[in-house]
Computed example of a mutant assay.
Amino acid sequence: MKKITIADHKIISKIKLSNLPSILDLETNDDDIKKELKKVRKKLGKLQDTLYAHGKYSILVCLQGMDTSGKDSLIREVFKDFNARGVEVMSFKVPTELELKHDYLWRHYLALPARGKFGVHNRTHYENVLVTRVHPNYILGEKLPNIHSVEDVNDKFWDTRFNQINNFEKHLAENGTLIFKFFMNLSKDEQKRRLLRRLDLKQKNWKFSAGDLKERKLWDNYMDCYQDAINRTSKEHAPWFNIPADNKPAARLAVATILYNTLKEYKDIKEPELDDKTKANLHLYKEQLNNE
């Protein structure tokens, strides 16, 4: 099996999205990939236990991608061996009435993982520079003081919003949050195949929405917005990773491997030692229990 390396996926310079691969060929079959994923996610689960005991870092995993890019199933398969207390999954839909009464980052602040935990966000704060950029009329719903019409949602507006997102992530990183941003890079042809599958298979019908076809017509607009967002916000403290998403097993293994191989390099993440007094009296505590 071909080795997955962080360098092959991490975005460290300006990219053109059309040049990034949507297929990850690991030179093996899906069964072998799934077996390897089981091994990696078990190691990742053990590392998370240590992270929880250590209690000084939190992990924010951001998953972005077009409809059908496999975000839900990736979450299920990659984090399957985690202790439930150590991982929190959030999915951000259309903002509620309450959320619209706050600034656009408010609901994302509320969902941030505590120290010692993983927070997995299925769609993220980047919806606010992706969907809203394709549909600038959505910004009017935020009732911002200086935005009176779609014409006010101009380049200056987006420059400001990107600066706010970069500052948000920098603040998180400086306070102990390790940020991983994964772009699930799905090809338009593969999305078509997956949408047709939802229509063909009765048990998959519930996943289909006519709105998916409306958004599909705006594919090029979305790709332009993704490219700009990635280029503006892939920083060393909050990098983007391109995850070829046309093959789901390979995409899941890539995400799990990148997470594990990055986190294992943090040598300070280790279980805390007992204080000297407790250590010195371990035999007494054992004796006390055995004599009950």
Results as ranks from 00 to 15, higher is better:
2 K>D: 11
5 T>G: 06
7 A>Y: 02
9 H>I: 01
9 H>Q: 02
9 H>K: 00
14 K>N: 10
14 K>F: 06
23 I>V: 08
26 L>I: 06
27 E>V: 13
28 T>K: 06
28 T>W: 06
31 D>H: 11
34 K>V: 15
34 K>L: 14
36 E>I: 05
37 L>I: 14
40 V>T: 05
43 K>L: 14
44 L>Q: 04
44 L>W: 03
47 L>F: 15
53 A>I: 06
53 A>F: 03
57 Y>A: 13
59 I>S: 02
62 C>A: 11
62 C>Y: 00
63 L>E: 02
65 G>Q: 00
71 K>Q: 13
72 D>V: 04
73 S>M: 06
73 S>T: 15
74 L>T: 08
74 L>H: 03
82 F>R: 03
82 F>Y: 06
82 F>A: 14
83 N>R: 07
84 A>K: 07
86 G>S: 13
89 V>A: 08
90 M>D: 10
93 K>L: 10
95 P>G: 08
99 E>M: 10
101 K>E: 08
104 Y>S: 14
110 L>K: 15
112 L>M: 12
114 A>V: 15
116 G>A: 00
117 K>I: 08
122 N>Q: 03
122 N>L: 00
125 H>N: 02
126 Y>E: 01
129 V>P: 01
130 L>V: 03
131 V>D: 15
131 V>Q: 15
131 V>I: 10
137 N>L: 07
139 I>T: 11
141 G>T: 14
143 K>W: 04
143 K>R: 08
143 K>H: 12
144 L>M: 13
144 L>K: 10
144 L>E: 10
147 I>G: 00
148 H>I: 03
152 D>T: 09
155 D>E: 10
155 D>M: 04
155 D>L: 01
159 D>S: 05
159 D>C: 03
161 R>E: 14
163 N>I: 05
164 Q>W: 03
164 Q>K: 10
165 I>G: 00
167 N>S: 15
168 F>P: 02
168 F>N: 03
170 K>H: 10
173 A>L: 12
174 E>R: 10
174 E>M: 09
174 E>G: 07
176 G>E: 10
182 F>K: 03
184 M>E: 07
185 N>V: 12
185 N>Y: 10
187 S>A: 08
189 D>W: 11
189 D>P: 11
190 E>R: 00
192 K>Y: 02
196 L>S: 13
196 L>R: 11
201 L>M: 13
203 Q>R: 10
205 N>Q: 12
208 F>G: 08
208 F>C: 14
210 A>R: 09
212 D>A: 15
219 W>H: 12
219 W>N: 12
220 D>H: 05
225 C>F: 08
225 C>S: 07
227 Q>W: 06
228 D>E: 12
229 A>P: 08
231 N>K: 05
235 K>T: 04
235 K>H: 09
236 E>N: 07
238 A>G: 05
241 F>Y: 11
247 N>E: 11
249 P>H: 01
249 P>G: 04
251 A>T: 04
251 A>D: 11
256 A>Q: 01
257 T>I: 04
261 N>G: 07
263 L>G: 01
263 L>K: 03
264 K>Y: 03
267 K>V: 08
268 D>T: 09
274 L>A: 13
275 D>W: 02
280 A>F: 02
282 L>F: 12
287 E>K: 06
287 E>Y: 05
288 Q>A: 15
289 L>F: 13
